[in-house]
């Protein structure tokens, strides 16, 4: 087992699920309840010192029981190593703790994850949509969200007044 994974396992035996090393990249699967303590350990431990946040995103697996996978990428500038942390999130309880307290850069990344996949981040300082408008309905990157839209554009006629229409709402008057 990779020394980083070994260290995480010995520190958090109840949170650790599995670790995998593919294409020279280490990924560690943990339970979502322990995400903040694990991340704080990764950040603070002098041998690991994952001080640089690279990315946070999520992947949707509609067939799985725990449908969403939140994926964190961390990098250590001091030690020049990377790690990928994964935590599964259930559809009924679609939330996970925010890591903004540890990395300030997580703020926008978590907002994007929420915006695109609808996963809520508890204790996030500014929990809003970021790329889509505030009144947008649906979560675009979920697999059940259609690529060609939900047909909103077909109903634009109802809202736009026509110049040739009579009455108060017509543009011609």
């Amino acid at each position: 087992m990779h020394p980083i994974a070994e260290k995480v396992r010995s520190q958090f035996p109840q949170a650790f699920i599995e670790s995998r090393e593919t294409l020279g990249e280490l990924s560690i699967q943990i339970r979502k309840e322990e995400i903040v303590p694990v991340c704080r350990f990764l950040h603070d431990d002098p041998d690991l010192s994952f001080d640089h946040i690279t990315d946070i995103c999520s992947v949707d697996f509609p067939e799985d029981q725990e449908r969403y996978e939140v994926v964190y990428h961390f990098y250590s500038i001091l030690k020049n190593h990377r790690v990928r942390i994964k935590a599964r999130v259930d559809e009924e309880d679609c939330q996970i703790e925010s890591v903004c307290e540890i990395w300030k850069g997580a703020n926008f990344l978590e907002r994007e994850t929420y915006d695109m996949m609808g996963i809520e981040f508890r204790n996030h300082p500014d929990h809003r949509r970021i790329l889509m408008t505030d009144d947008f309905e649906g979560w675009p990157l979920r697999k059940d969200f259609p690529t060609e839209g939900k047909g909103w554009r077909n109903s634009f006629d109802e809202f736009l007044p026509r110049p040739d229409e009579e009455g108060e709402e017509g543009l011609g008057n």
Binding site: T54, D55, C57, V59, D60, V71, H73, K104, G105, N107, F108, L109, E112, L141
Partner: peptide
């Protein structure tokens, strides 16, 4: 799934 880690987005966070 393809996620783009774009520097401009993260820089705007600061």
């Amino acid at each position: 799934r393809m996620k783009i880690r774009s520097p401009s987005f993260i820089h705007m966070g600061a």
